[in-house]
Amino acid sequence: MTPSFAILPKVLLIVAALGLAACKNPDRYGSGADGYGANGAGGAGSGLNGDGVATSGLGDPSNPASVAYFNQTVGDRVLFVVDQSTLSDEGRAVLDGQAGWLTANPDYAIIIEGHADEQGTREYNIALGARRADSVKNYLIAKGIAGSRMQTVSYGKERPIATCSDEACYSQNRRAVTVLSYGAGA
């Protein structure tokens, strides 16, 4: 066994604990959130070494089983057209990749976040974001992922990732994001 393997179980334990905490309260945007993804599972690596660089095994984007690989290479989000929750061909391709990853990594559960752009009323946008999240959930179920591994939440227009008031930003904000949480899988 190499030295690097020797530390791995310890890291996994800590990350697993973070994963459970996230399961209890999946709100990535709660206290201390400083922008997109900073409080998510991908941030666990930076939390461990404290310098803001993800260097743990789980955060290595070249490792196909890592959260970073899921977020960056598989793709953690799909986008929607105005007022719609129908998946595009491009969105389906991303979700096919997510389904494959989730099948290969059964220890992960997911929370699917639905979002809307700012061009709508607050309550309607919560309902619309929920529709989008559910549309992703149903697609993943159809691809063989157990519904028990998934939760959905809608943020409506409360958490844009792009802040301009143009279609260039709106198109990025009309999204459903799949957020991994470790240790809660089926």
């Binding site: 999946p26 709100d27 206290s31 607050r122 309550e123 919560i126 943020y155 409506g156």
Partner: peptide, 28 residues
């Protein structure tokens, strides 16, 4: 406090209670 997103508070008819939506549990 602002630890969770809160939305759309509403008074009761005599003002003794307030309904609102919060993400304190992680879900609205």
């Amino acid at each position: 406090d602002s630890s969770a997103i809160v939305l759309a508070p509403r008074f009761s008819p005599n003002g003794d209670r307030i309904l609102f939506t919060s993400y304190a549990s992680g879900f609205p």
